[in-house]
């Protein structure tokens, strides 16, 4: 059983225990009848998250990195209580995030999405967008909503008058600030951020990252920061978790993992990032990972990385490596760690 990351300390706020999330296509009426009659229907289940366990400590920023299709967004949504897990559970202070009926039980976890164009209702003034949740959950009365909204707009660096405007009247960076204000207005303890700067221009990314750093300092927020950008994750995270094809393959303090990765996939991923080269004599060469991400419809047996791994042996093709603690608060899911 993978217990990595659940280093027994009392500071854990989020615990993820053996969470799996599978997506199956909806069967048509005809297919359902055929299935009842015993016909073999190809269900083609996607194992987006496959038996993942870890914990997030109070006040830390945990970076979650991986390539597209590795399940990082799905895992974030399970933790935020948007998707019910197919197995296992995510909990906040030992209370499940979702009840048995698949309903979210807490407002203590809020989410910020990648695309602020898609996550804000274009027809509603942003003041109303921000106050809707807090009013519904009795965090503020309708009468005090205006001042409440102004407070959160100021906190994210927007003028209070912005409440009267519509989403299209903001630039991409400002819109992401609005989305952050909406999440914060619910007074969460945990913020799940899914690629919050990926759709922003380079000069705006730094502004939003600085905002996250400031909010974390001032509000003591705990964050799960999901990104494919290894540079940004390194900057903002205390610890990082690396995902590959539905599983966490490595977890540990950010600087330690970047300095000496223990999983061959983490090593390969770090080697793939284009370096910022300024030395005229320095030769740029990558050591690209061979091959491509296998389909999550049919992941390989054993370690999911074995097809592309330079160190794979017979055991890697048959036996799933557990996320084992390695000392120094690190954990790696590999039979032959580096």
């Amino acid at each position: 059983m993978s217990e990595g990351g659940s280093f027994k300390d009392m500071n854990q706020i989020i615990t993820v225990e053996n969470v799996s999330k599978r997506f199956s296509p909806r069967l048509s009426f005809g297919e359902k009848i055929a299935a009842r009659l015993g016909s073999p229907i190809e269900t083609r289940t996607v194992h987006a998250v496959d038996g993942v366990s870890f914990a997030i400590r109070k006040g830390e920023v945990l970076g979650l990195v991986g390539e597209s299709g590795c399940g990082k967004s799905t895992l974030g949504r399970v933790i935020a209580g948007i998707h019910p897990p197919s197995a296992g559970a995510a909990s906040i202070d030992s209370a499940p995030v979702m009840n048995a009926a698949g309903r979210k039980t807490t407002t203590r976890i809020q989410m910020v999405f990648q695309d602020p164009f898609a996550s804000l209702d274009p027809r509603i003034r942003i003041g109303e967008t921000i106050s809707e949740g807090p009013i519904a959950h009795n965090l503020v009365s309708s009468a005090e909503a205006k001042a409440y909204v102004a407070r959160w707009l100021t906190a994210v660096g927007l003028p209070a008058e912005a409440a009267e405007r519509f989403p299209h009247q903001f630039s991409g960076g400002q819109r992401q600030r609005v989305a952050i204000a909406r999440a914060l207005a619910m007074q969460p303890d945990v913020l799940v951020c899914d690629e919050p700067v990926a759709s922003l221009d380079v000069s705006i990314q730094a502004q939003i990252i600085n905002l996250f750093l400031k909010l974390r300092r001032e509000l003591g927020l705990t964050m799960l920061f999901i990104s494919h950008d290894l540079g940004i994750v390194r900057h903002i995270s205390d610890r990082i978790a690396v995902m590959y094809l539905g599983r966490i393959v490595e977890l540990g303090p950010t600087e330690a993992v970047y300095a000496a990765p223990q999983h061959p996939y983490t090593r390969a991923l770090l080697d793939s990032v284009p370096k910022f080269v300024t030395d005229a004599d320095e030769l740029v060469s990558f050591k690209p990972i061979e091959g491509e991400l296998p389909s999550p419809l049919s992941p390989p047996k054993g370690c999911h990385f074995n097809l592309r791994c330079p160190k794979a042996e017979a055991r890697c093709r048959s036996e799933r490596p557990p996320l084992d603690e390695q000392g120094g608060e690190r954990a790696v899911a590999c039979h032959f760690p580096l």
Partner: peptide, 20 residues
């Protein structure tokens, strides 16, 4: 200067004010 590679992890990044 705004790239995270040029900053101390956890410290504020150098930012260009305003927007394009």
């Amino acid at each position: 200067a705004s790239l995270p590679a040029h900053a101390v992890p956890g410290r504020d990044l150098v930012q260009i004010p305003g927007s394009t």
